[in-house]
Computed example of a mutant assay.
Amino acid sequence: MEHADVLVSRVALPPESAHRRARELLAGHPGCLAAAVPDTAMRCVVVVRDRTGAVSFVRPDQGGADAPVPPHAVGAVVHAWAGSGGSPRALRSLVPMPRR
């Protein structure tokens, strides 16, 4: 955890508690870029730190997926998006691609 770029909680919480937990995770690890917490609404709350240090909340839609995207996958996508310069607020949905 000390050197993680993304932290993920496995415990689903009510949306307000998920926001609070995500913020706590990021605040407790200043070198971390993103923290993801599943919520009981079958979504995931992600807090991401941008290059200036500002913190944004991201709660992407599942894009019509039958099953929710796992929090570790959401955190990884948001990390890659923000790490490549994308605005966290511009990431609106995640859609899993079928395996072939």
Rank of each mutant, 00 (worst) to 15 (best):
V37S: 07
A41G: 13
A36L: 07
P30Y: 09
A27R: 14
R20A: 14
T52F: 04
S56C: 07
V37Q: 01
R51M: 00
M42G: 11
M42D: 15
D50N: 12
P30S: 08
R49K: 08
A34M: 01
C44M: 11
A54L: 14
G63N: 11
P60D: 07
R49Q: 05
L13H: 05
R21P: 04
G28H: 07
F57C: 08
S17V: 05
A35N: 06
L25M: 15
P14F: 00
V46E: 04
S17E: 15
D50I: 07
P14M: 02
C32V: 07
P60H: 07
R49A: 05
D61H: 06
P60R: 11
T52Y: 08
S56Y: 15
G53E: 12
A22T: 01
S17I: 01
H19G: 15
A22Q: 02
A34L: 02
P38Q: 15
R23N: 00
C32L: 04
V55E: 13
G63P: 06
A22G: 13
E24H: 05
E16G: 02
V37P: 03
R43C: 04
P15N: 11
V45R: 13
R21A: 14
P38D: 12
C44V: 15
H29R: 15
G53V: 12
A34Y: 02
R23L: 11
G53I: 10
R23F: 03
P14E: 15
P14N: 05
D61Y: 04
Q62S: 15
G31L: 03
D50S: 09
A36T: 11
T52R: 14
L33T: 09
V48C: 09
E24C: 05
A41L: 08
G31M: 01
E24W: 03
A54W: 05
A18T: 09
L13W: 06
V45N: 08
V48M: 02
V46N: 01
R21Y: 08
H29M: 02
A27T: 09
L26W: 05
L25G: 07
D50C: 09
R20W: 04
T40P: 12
L13R: 14
A35L: 01
E16S: 06
V45W: 12
V46H: 06
L13N: 05
H29F: 02
P14V: 09
D39M: 06
P15V: 11
L33D: 00
V37M: 04
Q62H: 14
D61E: 10
P60T: 14
E16W: 00
R59G: 01
L26D: 04
D61Q: 06
G53N: 12
G53S: 11
G28N: 13
S17H: 11
R43N: 03
R49N: 08
P30E: 09
V37Y: 06
P14K: 05
V58N: 00
F57Q: 08
V48Y: 02
R43G: 13
R20T: 10
T40V: 14
G53F: 09
A35H: 04
V45K: 11
V58Y: 01
